[in-house]
């Protein structure tokens, strides 16, 4: 299965990169923007066909490595590859 994993900074944590992108977009004329938050996208191809097992694996890898629970949240989508 394939997992698409999105890692984002928690609400309330200052995101200087998102802020800089926001300012740059405003300079380009995109003025109707409330906020920009920058995150990470990770795609993982897992040798597993069972949805439940794949999900458990993805959660485990997010908790251990892909996200830092002090500052980040994650969510994921699973697809059959």
């Amino acid at each position: 299965m394939k997992a698409k994993i999105y890692v984002t900074l928690k609400r309330g944590i200052h995101d200087p990169q998102g802020h800089a992108i926001h300012q740059s977009l405003a300079t380009l004329g995109f003025e109707a923007i409330n906020e920009v938050r920058l995150g990470k996208f990770v795609e993982v191809d897992i040798e597993e066909h069972d949805q439940e097992k794949a999900e458990a694996t993805v959660k485990n890898m997010c908790d251990k490595l892909l996200a830092n629970p002090v500052i980040e949240n994650y969510r994921y989508e699973l697809f059959s590859s």
């Binding site: 900074l9 944590i13 200052h14 200087p16 990169q17 800089a20 830092n68 002090v70 500052i71």
Partner: peptide, 11 residues
């Protein structure tokens, strides 16, 4: 140690 590091405020 507790906590985490973020990007410097001015990047």
């Amino acid at each position: 140690l507790p906590g985490a590091m973020l990007r410097n405020t001015h990047l």
